[in-house]
Design a protein around this nucleic acid. Structure first.
Lengths: 176, 176
DNA sequence: AAAAGATTGTTGTTGACGACAACAATTGAT
DNA sequence: ATCAATTGTTGTCGTCAACAACAATCTTTT
């Protein structure tokens, strides 16, 4: 299936011999102008979801880039932060608090445990659950992650302005 | 591999016979209270990315739910909206404008073309590219999608307040 | 105390999505 | 005529949300 076109290209191919060298100027100009930035978004302009999606994409990319040296992704950072602030939490509690599935948390903790940042200690009161703790290595690591995350947050402030950043945080407190 | 625990559970199993019926009250109460909502987020509170992630998740879920009857997802809606507002655009132009990869757009257009909402018309000026258009069925469908999307937007306004919603849109215009 | 129901961690699958890398066809520039 | 760039396409990889099932364990009911 290395063919490129389903329908039109083949048909066009047969007529290719007849093609004349058209008005290139109109093509290259109109095309690149259109590909530039005069394309209307219509109803998308009024949708918060679209703006938020683009923003979140930008934020995640900057976060990943800023913490690339320590190889920590946003979700991993959020898990370690919550465990650090609330030692002994169960996986269920962490998942609920962060709005991630407990199935997903399993793999996240697996990776964090492999790197010796987090340890699952069998709960003393419930043999089903684990008490989550940062290792000593995890604690010092998290301190560095927080410094880098603060740097990332400064990037956000530079991008949208710090007063807008704070306003945004305030608007969205009901989701955190 | 139906075993449940890697390490701790097995070891705990041997000592299971000795266990006493501990203070259940402390367990069930403390545990469910913790699982409730007194878990601190620590540094996460100050991170716009975390708030935005939670918000975006909420928005997407509401969008999908509100447009479930027509089976249209946010990305599909954005593609149809842009094509509807700018007929004849190439795939490259749409991808660039919406910040999605052209590789991804291929599948999106495949599904929209299968449902007869969009058609790829061979460009008259560039035999590599397609001119994207809404079909007549796609135009009437998009009109309905826009009504449903407006309803979704009202849900957002109810959730965070309309003045906050507009403030948010204004803050994030640089990303759209 | 035994049975029934709920919870916790785990495994697996599905699908949307972003990022990359290749590729053929075509275009544009040299 | 040749070579670099563009366009649509295919494929792979990894992240992520959503479900569904399951064993072990706890809780509640009887």
């Amino acid at each position: 299936m290395a063919t490129r076109q389903k329908t039109s290209r083949k048909a066009a191919g047969t007529a290719a011999a007849i093609r004349r060298p058209r008005a290139r100027a109109a093509n290259s100009r109109a095309q690149s102008a259109y590909a530039g930035d005069d394309i209307g978004l219509d109803a998308l302009i009024g949708h918060a979801g679209y703006a938020v999606r683009r923003f979140q994409l930008w934020i995640f990319q900057d976060f990943v880039k800023t913490l690339a040296t320590v190889d920590i992704r946003p979700t991993q950072y959020s898990v370690m932060t919550v465990i650090g602030a609330n030692p002994g939490l169960s996986q269920m509690a962490v998942a609920k608090r962060l709005g991630i599935e407990r199935a997903r948390l399993v793999h996240l903790l697996d990776s964090l445990e492999e790197r010796d940042f987090v340890s699952r200690i069998p709960s003393a009161t419930d043999r089903r659950s684990h008490a989550l703790h940062l290792t000593s290595r995890g604690k010092t690591a998290l301190a560095q992650f927080k410094r880098l995350a603060a740097e990332h947050e400064r990037h956000v402030a530079e991008k949208i302005g710090n007063e807008n950043r704070e306003r945004l945080l305030q608007i969205l407190t009901c989701f955190t």
